[in-house]
Amino acid sequence: MIRSLKGPIEHRVGFAHGLPYPYQFPLSFPHPGVLGRADGRCGARGARPLLINATDPVGHPVHLVLSAGWSWAALAFCVGLARESRVESVVLAVASLVTAVIAYYLTKLGQGQYLTLGRGDPSGTPYVSWGDFASKTLVWCVVACVTGPVLGLAGNLARDHGLRGLPFRMLVPVVAVVEMSERLDVEAPLQRPIVDTTWSGVRLVAVAALVVLVGRAVMTWRLRPSAGQADK
């Protein structure tokens, strides 16, 4: 799979192993006659650029962060964290992920990423590949329904400020560290420097979050006996 990306790397954001982001994210249409002008009509002026530009120092890093698997996990986790009821945490976490997946692929559809050319059409008129769009949306909606309850419940259990809630509070930073480390090892050499910088920054922040969470939990645990003695 990595070898298949050794072609026009500059036209792709990359690939991943998380939620909707595993699919290669083309920055422009590969066929020069798919979309010519910004109004979406066909022409010979080349492909219309999409909203994400690989050279954008702000938009591209934001896209990399929001497209990562850990950020999708964080969405469901935070929804569960915000609800007192475990049932609400589970249900709303699933609903939030499904809604986000649908919005994600509708955005890609609006950007024209599912336009394709018919092999037997001599006119070269592009059309929407509804099968591709529907299949990917459905697959990741199913994934959302499977992972959403786990992440939502983890967020709810993380409301416990003691040591029992610590493993659940560490969940999202751990996922971020593992995912970013894998991407840096496997994908970063094939990407632009801004990708390496973004992923390294995310991993650094995640490690710092883990240190803070563990340190805070340990300090809270050590101070509790002193507080109890003071009450006596």
Rank of each mutant, 00 (worst) to 15 (best):
A206I: 04
A47W: 06
G69Q: 02
G201A: 06
V175D: 01
H63V: 03
P193E: 12
M1P: 05
L213N: 05
M1R: 13
R183L: 14
R224V: 10
A230D: 15
F168G: 01
W199S: 00
A103R: 12
C42Q: 12
G112L: 00
L50R: 05
V98E: 03
G165K: 05
L190C: 09
A103L: 15
V90W: 01
A154P: 02
G228L: 14
V94Q: 02
G228T: 15
P193Y: 06
G80P: 01
G165A: 05
D196G: 15
G124A: 05
G59L: 10
C42D: 05
Y105N: 04
G148A: 10
V218S: 10
L66F: 13
H60P: 02
Q113W: 00
K6D: 12
Y127M: 11
L35G: 00
K232C: 09
H31L: 06
I52M: 08
Y105T: 04
V178E: 06
R83P: 00
M180H: 02
M1T: 09
V211H: 08
D56A: 09
P167E: 09
M180V: 10
A144S: 14
K6N: 11
V142M: 10
G215W: 07
I52H: 01
L138Q: 13
G162D: 11
L171K: 10
L151E: 00
V174S: 12
D39N: 13
V90K: 01
A209C: 11
V139S: 09
G80S: 07
L75S: 00
L106R: 13
K232E: 12
V13E: 02
V207L: 15
R86M: 13
V65E: 02
L184W: 03
A217T: 05
G7P: 02
D160Y: 03
C78I: 11
P26L: 05
A74S: 11
V98M: 14
T197D: 07
G165N: 06
N156H: 13
P122I: 06
A93G: 15
A103Y: 07
A73R: 00
D132N: 12
A82Y: 05
V186Y: 03
R12C: 09
S123L: 15
